[in-house]
Design a protein around this nucleic acid. Structure first.
Ligand SMILES: NC(=O)c1ccc[n+]([C@@H]2O[C@H](COP(=O)([O-])OP(=O)(O)OC[C@H]3O[C@@H](n4cnc5c(N)ncnc54)[C@H](O)[C@@H]3O)[C@@H](O)[C@H]2O)c1
Ligand SMILES: NC(=O)c1ccc[n+]([C@@H]2O[C@H](COP(=O)([O-])OP(=O)(O)OC[C@H]3O[C@@H](n4cnc5c(N)ncnc54)[C@H](O)[C@@H]3O)[C@@H](O)[C@H]2O)c1
Lengths: 224, 224
DNA sequence: TCCTAATAGATATTTATTTATCGATATAAA
DNA sequence: TTTATATCGATAAATAAATATCTATTAGGA
């Protein structure tokens, strides 16, 4: 138990803002790599991504990648370092529940594969959807979900069902032994058995945007 | 100019984490309201949303809503307060560029209307899509975007085009006088002319989930 | 070969955010 | 009416994150 707590403490020790910036570096560095850029300084990264060099350096430090004075970092090493650090090297298999419009968009998005997320299949309680194929992935009836999670030892569940069904769907997944849930429904899922819940809340971003816009417009009204 | 800077300073003074939590309270309180609950204490909100009372109280304080000792807050007042505070009272009109699978999901999502976001139409550079209707909204050719932004004085642009076209699309919107851009492509948009950019990065959330999962699995390997 | 400048890495400081403490207030029960 | 207590609101402390400063290293030119 100590080891687990210790490990969890280590995650706590990584600033979540850093974790959220790592994919931004990753995307940017992959573009650089394609342009045959092999070394880069944190100063240059910061300039391109509109961050500050110190922050970039600290973020990279977290992944364990080291650079060389006057040279910078190896682009490939940072990319590998981020993938290793986040666990993107060995891909995790996932099931998606709720093959509606958002579910279909997620199924169709190729980008997640690069992040080690391999969505195997979708599940829906609408009989009309069961048996169909969306972006190359089969849609099964919800009844098959628990058994398939157990048999295939799938660790990640993605929830794109309506808000009212989200907790129920999560319960089914957690009962069947899933380890982590990525929830797109606008409700807070109550976890049990140490399951990791990542709530994705588009309204949160919209709130930030709305407020900034409101303040900007208020300022314009004062001085047009 | 001073007034504008001052206003922007005020936004800076509001913790962004608070802004991101407000929609969570909003959603929760609307559910309460439907259950005919008219008063609620921050202790009760915190218990239900797995937060701590002090944080809830400070967040509510930001909106200017006041409560009464021993009674709590008026549910309706907080809901109104949040909507007023975030500028959700008077809805903002938006255009969406990139009527692909993610664009379609966003067009189909009813929830945004409650947050004062009214997506009027979509735009796509694929001639096959122009003229179609997605979730009740018309899809126009991209060429029509600048003129329509100007004529209808639309203030918000939503970008769901592929990453390579995101900056170009943003430039078109900004040239036409848009005030804020909500960008779903995994690239950082460079703004000009004081345009507000809100980058939505699903990979960021996935990174947090991945790391937690990796650490958990590492812990399990030590003590199964 | 030595000097210069760019750069990473370590340490320190500042700022932002969260959490705790305490006093005031109003309700409801005694 | 009085008293106990749940609650808000203000202030203070602690924690987390961002930023600044200093030091050491090394490529590349003088
Ligand atoms: N579309 C968006 O842009 C968007 C944005 C933010 C949040 N969301 C959230 O994502 C979720 C899905 O949104 P959507 O627009 O795709 O809705 P949708 O109605 O298009 O899709 C929901 C799907 O879930 C299925 N479903 C319903 N109940 C189910 C159950 N109990 N078990 C399994 N499947 C079930 C339905 O058959 C349907 O196919 C909602 O919770 C919504 O609030 C969507
Ligand atoms: N689908 C997801 O779950 C998801 C998740 C994260 C990020 N994204 C990002 O969202 C964006 C869209 O993803 P998608 O899955 O909907 O892709 P998609 O290919 O289904 O849709 C893209 C749409 O944009 C249109 N388009 C292309 N170039 C354009 C241009 N220059 N101007 C106007 N329209 C143009 C295409 O015709 C198409 O309809 C991408 O940048 C993707 O990386 C998607």
């Amino acid at each position: 138990m100590e080891s687990k707590d210790e490990k969890i403490k280590i995650v706590r020790g990584i600033p979540e803002p850093t974790l959220r910036r790592l994919p931004v570096y990753h995307q940017y560095l992959r573009e650089l790599e394609q342009k045959k850029v092999f070394f880069i300084s944190c100063t240059a990264i910061a300039a391109d991504l509109k961050l500050i060099p110190i922050q970039v350096r600290k973020d990279i430090e977290m992944t364990g990648v080291v650079g060389r004075p006057k040279i910078g970092y190896s682009v490939k090493q940072i990319i590998d370092g981020i993938e290793e650090f986040l666990g993107w090297k060995k891909s995790s298999e996932a099931f998606l529940a709720g093959a509606g419009s958002l579910g279909a968009a997620i199924l169709g998005y190729q980008g997640f594969k690069e992040y080690g997320l391999d969505i195997l299949a979708a599940f829906d309680n609408n009989p009309a959807k069961a048996g169909t194929i969306i972006h190359g992935r089969k849609v099964y009836a919800m009844e098959k979900l628990p058994d398939l999670i157990r048999r295939m030892k799938v660790k990640i569940g993605i929830i794109t069902v309506p808000a009212v069904s989200a907790q129920k769907t999560a319960d089914i997944m957690m009962d069947a032994g899933i380890s982590a849930i990525w929830n797109f429904a606008p409700v807070k899922i109550s976890p049990f058995g140490g399951v990791i819940i990542q709530n994705e809340n588009l309204a949160a971003s919209l709130a930030v945007l709305s407020k900034k816009l409101k303040v900007m417009q208020a300022a314009e009204n004062i001085r047009p």
